[in-house]
Each structure stands twice: as C-alpha cells, then as structure tokens.
Design a protein around this nucleic acid. Structure first.
Lengths: 209, 209
DNA sequence: GCGCAGCCTGATCGTACGATCAGAGTCTTG
DNA sequence: CAAGACTCTGATCGTACGATCAGGCTGCGC
C-alpha cells in the first residue's frame, strides 16, 4: 500500500505540473497570441522553470496544441453532457438550452474564442490543425441544427453559415472584451446574473423569445 | 510654379511612404497582434527598409498608435458621412442604415475588430489609450441610441451594454474569421452579395425585420 | 552649381527569445 | 541499500528582435 501511495504521489505530482503548465499556457496564449506568448512567462505563471516546458512538451508549438486540445475537450464534454441530459426534449428547447450552455462556457473560458480569433486571422498551419481537428465538427453540427430550425420556422430565414457567425460572434464577445466592458460600462461580465442576462439576450435575438 | 510642383512631389513622396508603412503596419498588427508583429515584416510589406520605420515613427508603439488613429478616423468619417446624409430621417431607419454601414465597414476593414480584440484582452497601456481615445465615444453614442430605440419598442428589451456587445460581436466576426469561414463553408465573406446578406441578417436579428 | 536639408539604407548595438544539455534531486525497483 | 528511472534546474546555445548611428543619395534654395 505504501508503495502504491508513494507511486501515486509521484505520478500525481508530475501530472499536476503538466496541468499547471497547460493552465498557464492557455491563459498566456489567449492573451498574447502564439507569437507574443513567451515560454518564460508561461513557466513563471505555472511556478516552474522554463526548460521544464520542453521536458513535458517537445516544443512551444506542441504545448499550444496540448492546451487547445484540452480546452476543446472541456467544451465538448460540457455540450455533450448537456445534450445527453436533454434526450427526448423537443429540438427548439434543446437548442435554446445548448446556446445557453455555450454562453456560459464562453464566460467560463473566454480563452476559446480568443485563441480561435487569433489563429483564424491568418492561414497558418496552426489554423489548419485547429479548424480541421476541432472547429469543423462543431460547425457541421451547429449549422445542421440551424438549418432544421429555420426550415421549421423557429429561426429567422438566415443562411446557416451566417447564423453560425452571428452566434459565435454575439455570444462570447462581451466576455472576450471583459476588460474593455468593465471600463466602458462598469459592468462585470463575469457576474453570474450578467452571464444569465447575456444568455437571455442571445436567445432572444436568435429565437425571438 | 516649378519650385512649388517639385516641392510638392518631394513631400508627396515622403507622405506616400508614410502611408505605405501605415497600411502595412495595420495589416501586420491586426494579423499578429502587437507583440507578434515585427517591424521587419512591416517594412518588407511596405517595400522599405526596417530603420525607416524608426525614422518616420519614433518607435514601434507610436507606429501602432498612428495606424490605429488613421483606422478610427476612417471609421468615424464613414459613419459621420452616412449620418450626415440621413438628416431628417426617423431614428429607426437611421440606426438600421448605420448598422448596415458598420457591417460594410467591418468587411472593408476587419483589422478594426482584430486589433480591438487583441488589445482588449489585456489591461495594458495600449488598451487604456485605445478605449479612452477611440472606443468610448462610439460606445456612448451607440448605447444612447440603443436605449432610445428600446424605450420606443423598436429593439428588444435588452440592456444597451449587452446590445452593444451583441452588435460588435455579431457584425464583424464573419469577416474577422474569413479564412476559417472560407474553409468551413466555402463562402467568401468578402463577396458583395455575402456582405449585403450579412448586413440583412444583423439587422433582422436586432430589429426583427 | 554648390551647399544643405530631407529621405533613406547598411551595419550593428544590446536584449530576449526558444531550445538544448549536463547534472542535481527524488522516488521506485530489485 | 544500491541501481536506475523520472522530474526538474542552471547555464548557455544560436537567432531574431527593436533601436541606433553614420553615411549616401536626391532635389530644392541661395
């Protein structure tokens, strides 16, 4: 038992270091973009030394991919769990609640949209990877649902691709620009009631109620 | 006359160099963010050598400010001219057309939102400058108009600050993520009819028609 | 047409970047 | 308890950054 415990402690220590690095990497990459982020700042925020990043991840590029992978896994878990709990519910209600979940996730992890925005500006290899590996599945599922809802008259007659970019623009921007928002309006976008109000607003805009 | 002409030619040559540098700077800053943009790449795109940037602009920081100043001047000119042409028209129609103008501007200069997004992520000195100098006047004017239209029942009952971030998120995102959009949907967001369709969509969402 | 001011370039400065490497410390295994 | 693997650090590599500086070129004013 002693051995197992100690083994666990050791392994957990290494794993928690990896997690701390990924947390810090996600923050710094989302704040400074890939080129502007420095491995030294990520290391400092994670409370480790800079060469350790190259020990756990072979390069800055791979660290970025690992951080993004984990973020999208969290998103897919959240949306998947929400959808699983709504089995049998009609599609309009389901989609409204999924949009609400998406707004909440955007508030919890504004890094998602910061990173997508930063990378999608240029047609680089990281954008290739990001779009094909993570964004496309979400895009296909979302636009398919939008097309069905529009056909049923539950959404305005707007092409699905446009609706997709209206949603992915409208939902997270207040949280992505949170420092600006606080300064301009005095509102803290991350307050629970503000998040809820924003989700209401997005749903009202899209579904009309 | 010869003297004047020649003097003008000389001066215009220098001015056009400045303009070329500002054009390139706007592109590179918007693509790579401030830290990720290199003065060498800006110089290359402008067709000049790198030290020339420090000749015309004292530092990378000041070059950034000059490029942003010019961009916001263009935006304010566009919105001002549109509003001036609508004197006497009722406010609902005016605001719809201003939103349309804003969508068109976002398509013409996606750099605006790329830069705002990049800088507003962190509370740095450039964000201070950007918000107080350029964003706040637009925010105040927009939210004031939204409050009036909501009171008159022309906009859904959503707090003006939320409406502001819904608009500034929904309108430009398709153009900001243009490379991604092309890849995901095959649609070129910068095609004239797509821009028009997107403007229609934004207005439909906000005003319900 | 000569000198001078304005526009621009090549060379180079100090600094900070990502990455590498040898080795220290720690814990498991035999 | 000795050997070895895993985790982590300090020192340092070559490179690319922003900025500076001395000097060349062009074209106008005297």
């Amino acid at each position: 038992m002693t051995d197992t415990t100690l083994a666990r402690v050791t392994r957990r220590s290494a794993d928690s270091t990896r997690e701390a690095i990924l947390d810090a990497a996600l923050d710094v990459f989302s704040e400074r973009s890939f080129e502007g982020a420095t491995t030294r700042e990520i290391a400092t925020r994670a409370g480790v030394t800079q060469p350790l990043l190259n020990y756990h991840f072979s390069s800055k590029d791979e660290l970025w991919r690992a951080a993004v992978d984990r973020l999208f896994a969290t998103l897919n878990d959240a949306l998947g769990a929400r959808a699983a709990g709504l089995r049998g519910v009609d599609e309009v209600t389901t989609q409204k609640l999924l949009v609400r979940e998406f707004v909440h996730f955007s508030a919890r992890y504004p890094q998602l949209h910061r990173i997508i925005t930063a990378e999608s500006k240029i047609d680089g290899p990281r954008m290739d990877w990001l779009v094909e590996r993570h964004v496309r599945p979400l895009y296909e599922a979302t636009t398919a649902a939008f097309a069905r809802l529009t056909a049923q008259g539950h959404l305005p007659a707007i092409p699905p691709a446009h609706l997709y970019y209206l949603l992915t623009g409208a939902a997270p921007t207040m949280f992505v620009l949170a420092p600006e928002c606080r300064r301009l309006s005095g509102i803290d976008p991350f307050a629970d009631d503000v998040i809820e109000q924003h989700a209401d607003a997005v749903i009202t805009l899209l579904f009309g109620s």
